[in-house]
């Protein structure tokens, strides 16, 4: 019969209309409470249709890998040795890999010798150009630049606030741990601890040297100094357990790969730095 198709279609529309209410009745006032897992169910694949999230009273939290504009990781304020120290070593890989070239870095240099120091003097990101691609985060060998989850950045004037400088960009490491715990754990596991990679490397070197010295001096008492080192660095002991867990969870090849990738990136960074030095020297000769 002519018109049956239309009627059938309208029937489906009306079904959708009522479905909203049946689900509403199912959840009832629970909808307005915070504690229950209703949000999880309502936004999940099992519900019929989709539910409106009542932004700004009810925001859909973004997943861990979510990327918005980048930020720089610094040590926490309560860090025992170097509170607020930059993780960034100004190696420049992020500035080089950035597709729209929105990252500007000034590498710090020693005021006396003029030689570069692994620390950024200035750091700028033009968020009017940034395309949120996440390459800077992906290729940073020091886990120092990360993509933020804070998308509430609307402003009335872009000329004053849309070039983020170093001060605006830095956020403590604990923030990164809080927004992306899984990724942060994976990375820490790849580095070998929650510290900055250079700190860890140095500690390992020290430990190795100490172990060697101890072994040379007193081969029998080898385990003792090790225990004391662990006690000396509470931060390392603190993370030992979760890291161990992560190791148990994570499949072996991935770990190796991450490690390898990091090493490679490091090598690359070194080579880049050497190249840059060479280039600078050459140009100095030219002029």
């Amino acid at each position: 019969m002519y018109g049956m198709g239309i009627l059938k279609g309208l029937g489906i529309t009306i079904k959708h209309f009522f479905a909203t209410y049946t689900d509403e009745i199912r959840y009832g006032l629970r909808k307005y409470t915070k504690a229950v897992d209703n949000f999880q169910i309502r936004q999940g694949p099992e519900t019929k249709g989709i539910f409106t999230s009542m932004y700004p009273d009810e925001k859909i939290a973004v997943p861990e890998r979510f990327r918005f504009v980048p930020f720089l990781v610094v040590n926490d304020d309560d860090h025992p040795d170097a509170p607020g120290a930059d993780w960034c070593t100004a190696c420049g890989i992020c500035a080089k890999v950035c597709p729209p070239q929105c990252i500007w870095i000034v590498r710090a240099s020693d005021p006396n010798t003029g030689r570069p120091v692994p620390r950024p003097d200035e750091f700028y990101i033009d968020i009017d150009i940034c395309m949120n691609c996440g390459f800077c985060m992906e290729f940073c060998p020091f886990d120092a630049i990360k993509m933020d989850h804070d998308y509430e950045l609307a402003s009335y004037d872009r000329t004053t606030v849309h070039i983020h400088d170093h001060e605006r960009l830095i956020k403590p490491f604990s923030y990164w741990k809080s927004i992306a715990p899984t990724t942060a754990t994976e990375e820490a596991e790849a580095r070998g601890g929650w510290e900055h990679i250079d700190v860890i490397k140095e500690r390992k070197k020290r430990e190795a040297a100490a172990a060697r010295a101890a072994a040379a001096a007193q081969p029998a008492a080898a385990p003792a100094p090790q225990a004391s080192t662990a006690a000396e660095t509470p931060a390392a002991a603190d993370v030992a357990a979760p890291v161990a867990e992560a190791v148990a969870d994570a499949p072996a090849p991935v770990v190796d790969e991450a490690e390898e990738e990091r090493k490679k990136a490091e090598r690359l960074a070194k080579r880049e730095a050497a190249l840059a030095r060479k280039k600078a020297k050459q140009e100095g000769g030219d002029n």
Binding site: V62, V69, L153, Y156
Partner: peptide
């Protein structure tokens, strides 16, 4: 101005 590329609906 709403930054982002693209800004999410939120």
């Amino acid at each position: 101005y709403v930054p982002g590329c693209p800004p999410t609906p939120q």
